[in-house]
Design a binder for these strands. Structure first.
Lengths: 260, 260
DNA sequence: GGTTCGTAGTCAATGCCTCTGACAAAGGCT
DNA sequence: AGCCTTTGTCAGAGGCATTGACTACGAACC
């Protein structure tokens, strides 16, 4: 199954020059690399250069160490990614506690996750859709389930509602992060589509697009997110056995909370 | 990745070690490789072996050609991924047309995208969050906007609602695909968390998790998806200037629209 | 203080990847 | 037939994930 005739001469031209900070530099002091330092530097690199160019050799060099030094602390790149994922959840959820109104708690959790993922799109796009089951994650899970129980859901229904909320938060934040982690050029081309390509669309072929072509570019990410979030939260408010009695949730302005 | 798919691949693509699938084989006939053939084989490879091992050399060999042959038809791997993305949308939306009830149209579009992404998780995880702006995509956009207009939304509001629906569909389907594209072992570990790890959680530390620990494992992906989808669709029904008049949607209270 | 010992950091190497530029054969064109 | 573009092939540069061997640092113990 393995290839038999592929080239193998790639590793021949090894220059022996001693680049600074690279291979051949002075040896690092013994305690210099810790998991915390490595994760922190990973975040810095990912924020600065995106997820595509992120590699363990680069990370090692950025730390002033050998390209393979990180492997002394993480068994594999995937192992490091998990640590980064947990670090993100921790950053998102520090100081989180339940609010009086459970709907507020739910909204805050989702908003916090989204904000952190948007702040670190490279890291988020690597680690979204991974669950770490470490303390930071468990705490959020507990808070979310607490809100669901506070709403009066019980047993299997509560489990379904919690999973729906958790998956929704992860899917949305992960999706936005994946987009923001693309090459800036690609992102620009994508956003430009709303502003240019759809403007010039053929009326006969795509009449509905044509009809609102002028309005498509003005929609912001925040618009979209808050709209979907309110649909989800209001929907659960309407379905909850024990809805929230906050002032803002009993007023009819949100159209579904307790209108009619 | 360690699944026993190699036998199937060998039976079809790489007949034996001396076949044209490797360097040194006989030259392929001139029109053998077309974008369509290459995309089709990519999908087959991605379905069989997942996204991690997918490479252009492998693809070339699977086609019985040179490892670099694909570069004659696609400028880069990213270019190929875009073509795959469009192919997925096409597969998801063939035969799609507006239903009498706009809410049904919306639900069908979202369900179709999800079904296709779940059927090709490897391909979907590569191509989600990319927009192609090619005909297949434009047609869905047009249908979706048509449904939104049918609901009575206009101008900027219609644009917001459409974008929310589209992003929701993409985020959800992409999120599920990303999970399904992980190593089967990782997926198993993740699912097992609901069944085992959460069962043994400490009551004092995470009391809410503890309270519904027995119910967490019984939630299915379909449960979750249909729940969120109904929240979104029902929410737009409630907010629409011209709600649907289908029998199932005319009930005056939104909370009873789709009781579960 | 000196010796020992585990380990963090370094080095060399393997095999795979993306992508390029040079080259050659295969057809279409006149 | 002769020419020209296209398309498949080949060799290779440079990068990445990962491994096994080596080495020196610093703690532990005498």
């Amino acid at each position: 199954m393995t290839s038999s005739t592929s080239g193998r001469a790639a590793a021949r031209g090894e220059r022996d020059g001693t680049g600074p900070g690279r291979r051949g530099g002075r040896r690092l002091r013994r305690g210099s690399l810790t998991p915390e330092v490595i994760v922190a530097e990973s975040l810095r690199l990912l924020d600065a250069q995106g997820a595509d160019g992120f590699s363990l050799p680069k990370l090692g060099r950025a730390l002033g160490a050998d390209p393979t030094a990180v492997y002394r602390h993480f068994a594999s790149k995937d192992d490091l990614v998990l640590a980064i994922a947990d670090r993100l959840i921790e950053e998102a959820m520090t100081g989180l506690s339940a609010r009086p109104c459970w709907a507020d708690t739910v909204a805050e959790v989702v908003r916090r996750l989204r904000a952190t993922y948007r702040a670190h799109p490279g890291a988020a796009s690597l680690s979204a859709s991974r669950t770490t089951q470490r303390p930071a994650e468990m705490r959020v899970v507990n808070v979310l389930i607490g809100a669901v129980l506070q709403a009066g859901f019980e047993g299997a229904a509560a489990a379904r509602v919690y999973r729906a909320l958790g998956d929704f938060a992860l899917a949305w934040a992960g999706g936005e992060a994946a987009f923001l982690a693309l090459d800036p050029g690609l992102q620009q081309a994508d956003r430009a589509a709303w502003a240019r390509a759809y403007l010039a669309v053929d009326q006969a072929e795509y009449p509905h697009i044509w009809q609102i072509r002028d309005d498509l570019a003005s929609v912001t990410d925040d618009d979209i997110f808050e709209m979907i979030l309110s649909l989800v939260v209001d929907g659960f408010l309407a379905r909850a056995p024990r809805p929230c009695t906050c002032a803002k949730h009993v007023s009819p302005d949100t159209a579904t909370a307790s209108a009619t």
